[in-house]
């Protein structure tokens, strides 16, 4: 397992994928964070409450929603890129135990997702706290709560990236896998969560976004209305379970498939 992990780690560090995806996550977080901060408290359109309030500051801290999706895509690219670039042949020649390869990919994707999450959380915190301070507002949330939201972004990004790696192994066609993950985050969860509100909190993106501070009906991408927040440890357990489940299904499928 150590050899497989080392190889997967080298694969990630010898290309610009993590840097590019982290850059994208930071850019999207900054765009949404700044737009929210600038319009906060104006009451216009979808403006969040004032940064002087706990709700406003929390919403602004939670501008990492798209970063969570980018983390999932990072996981997809880690796995499906092997098939798009036809490097899977060498990978499975060097390590014929396909389950081991998949596990290594999920672990490395989680680590890369965590790095992306740290960058995104730092960006949203910098923007929210910076704008609040520049307007002379006292800190509307205690430090542990701010840290918990930031941690939610990091843990959520890591676990969604791991699940993305499973999805990328399952759906080898990279474009299809990317479309599937984006559609899941932007459409499927919104529709399912809005239709069956009791199930919404158990959906992976929704659970991760709520760990990062999003509340029902808010967030970007939006969290379905009426969905209640899952307790923090339960949300982590749920995301771990989903990542493992996707990986197991992917492993069972990958072991049987021909590498052509």
């Amino acid at each position: 397992m150590t050899a497989a992990l080392r190889a997967e780690f080298l694969k990630l560090t010898s290309t610009r994928l993590v840097a590019a995806m982290t850059g994208l996550a930071v850019a999207l977080t900054a765009l949404i964070g700044v737009l929210e901060a600038v319009t906060a408290g104006t009451g216009k359109g979808m403006a969040i409450p004032s940064l002087a309030t706990s709700g406003g500051l929390r919403d602004n801290l939670a501008s990492t929603g798209f970063a969570l999706l980018v983390a999932a895509l990072l996981g997809v690219l880690v796995a499906s890129g092997e098939f798009r670039l036809k490097t899977a042949t060498d990978t499975y020649l060097d390590q014929p135990d396909r389950t081991r390869v998949l596990a290594a990919k999920a672990i490395v994707a989680a680590a890369a997702g965590a790095v992306l999450g740290i960058a995104a959380a730092a960006t949203s915190a910098g923007i929210a706290l910076g704008f609040a301070a520049s307007r002379g507002y006292p800190l509307a949330l205690p430090d542990p709560v701010i840290a918990r939201y930031a941690g939610g972004t990091v843990v959520g990004s890591a676990l969604l990236a791991a699940a993305g790696a499973g999805a990328g192994s399952l759906i080898r066609q990279q474009t299809g896998a990317i479309i599937a993950v984006v559609a899941w985050g932007l459409v499927v969860e919104l529709v399912v969560g809005a239709t069956i509100t009791t199930a919404g909190r158990f959906l992976p993106y929704t659970a991760a976004a709520m760990m990062a501070g999003d509340t029902n009906g808010g967030g970007m991408p939006q969290i379905p209305r009426g969905v209640t927040t899952l307790p923090y440890p339960a949300a982590i357990a749920l995301l771990v379970a989903i990542a493992i489940a996707v990986a197991v299904v992917a492993a069972l499928t990958t072991v049987r498939r021909d590498i052509t």
């Binding site: 050899a3 080392r6 694969k11 010898s14 290309t15 890129g81 060498d90 060097d94 390590q95």
Partner: peptide
């Protein structure tokens, strides 16, 4: 068999050496 276009020749071999 393919290569990651952004990985150097030595980088490609480093990955394979690590795996094996």
């Amino acid at each position: 068999s393919g290569f990651h276009p952004g990985r150097t020749a030595a980088g490609h071999l480093r990955v394979r050496a690590a795996a094996t």
